[in-house]
Amino acid sequence: MTGRRAVAGTVGIVLVSHSGPVAESVAALALGLAGGAQAPVAAAGGTPDGGLGTSAELIAEAARSVDGGAGVALLVDLGSAVLTVKAMVAEGDELPESARLVDAPFLEGAVAAVVTASTGADLTAVATAAGEAYGYRKE
């Protein structure tokens, strides 16, 4: 898990993938495309030993690291990443109070979320922008 630290008053973004390199790369891509963005982004990909899978501990750690008090948006890729974050939000106490699973395509949603969060938008606006990425047709 790497990423930028929490920024007070800015929504934090957590990217949860089955793969560490995928999460890290999407984080780097989103930050790169966002220009001089300042939104805190943390990647939580794969298992702690570097394998493919989902780690609740890495997710919780990532969410805490980007929580600046304005909420944390979690974007996920597939299967156990979706179910783990849903279970953590519904049942657990591991995530910050304001953490929210955002229903969005992973890569496109991450770019939209980071750009939007960097403008100082609130969590609802960030989640909406990320979700709208579903509507961007490519053909």
Partner: peptide, 17 residues
């Protein structure tokens, strides 16, 4: 939920929790 690493973690975890 914290140790399984696959979908069965949150599923069995939610069942028991």
């Amino acid at each position: 939920v914290s140790t399984v690493g696959g979908a069965s973690g949150p599923l069995f975890g939610t069942l028991l929790r």
